[in-house]
Simulated scan of single mutants.
Amino acid sequence: MNTPNTLSVLSCPQCGGELHPDEGQIFIICPYCGATVFVDKSRTVFHWVLTPTLNGEQAEAALKRWMSGSETVKDLDQKSQIVNRSFRYFPLWYFRWKSDGQERVALEPAAATSVTELAHLSLLAGDLRPYAPSLEGDSEPPSVPLEAGLDWFRQSHAGAKVEEMALVHVPIFEFKYLYRGETYTAVVDAATGSVLANVYPAKAELPYRLVGGVAAVVFLCLASFPVIGGLADHDGGAIAGFLLCSGLGLIAAPILMAWAGWVAARV
């Protein structure tokens, strides 16, 4: 008979042993096999953690490399100012299933976050370790029920049969940085160094599209010269048009390349 402070008897997902979590207890270790378990209402799932490989300085260096890359505005690494850096283990629901004979994994956030790209992390089963209770001080507890995570999974993977469910805590560094008076958030995966961000100062596409559009129009016009010449003069019009096209093309190409380089240097 259960005491008032004990939940109904649950089973360990690894060995099937009886678990008797206290009321409010969500992280437990099976006394029979040592498996780390997360309790979600009336069910239990494995509880894993991804071990960090980067410290704060290395994570900041990864962020700076991303800022200086091709996705963000030019010199973002130099023109922005990091105003806050924090570390925590963020919870994700882990779903494993098979498709076309291959094992696949999907992740869904187990807590509220503005960086939904966290669900796109790549986790390998071999990288996961049993969660240690000593990490609780740095771990964000799950606030999204497992059933909600399952609903999200089913919406994007209709008909998939889940073979394993688990809670995984991944190590992340969250950065807040200022750029032109606006505050942005970026997350660095402390296990791989990958940078995740939903909103960031991206390169403006219009200047590049303008250069590309003008170049396309110029060379399309030049390419029409041999055709027009051939229609106007069957004997030598096509050759004259080709020579004119080639000559003007040699003049236009370096001008357009210089313009493209100027845009790339300033956008």
Rank of each mutant, 00 (worst) to 15 (best):
A232L: 15
S8C: 00
P52E: 07
Q102N: 14
V105D: 04
H169W: 11
D77C: 07
A132Y: 06
A160N: 05
E60F: 11
D22C: 04
A62H: 09
A258D: 02
A252I: 02
T6I: 15
A223V: 06
L76W: 10
A59S: 12
A148E: 15
T6C: 12
W259G: 00
V39R: 08
V227Y: 13
V37A: 08
V83Q: 07
L121M: 15
E174I: 00
D40R: 02
E182Y: 08
Y177E: 01
D138F: 07
L128W: 05
V73K: 14
L123C: 07
I239Y: 01
D100C: 05
T72E: 11
V211N: 10
T53Q: 12
G181V: 04
V195I: 07
Q78R: 15
F242S: 02
A62Q: 14
L123V: 06
H20Y: 09
W48L: 05
K203R: 15
M165T: 10
K41G: 01
G249D: 05
M1W: 15
M165V: 03
V217E: 08
H157P: 04
L54Y: 12
P4R: 11
L167H: 04
L206F: 12
E174P: 00
G193C: 14
L222S: 04
E174M: 05
G17P: 08
A111Y: 05
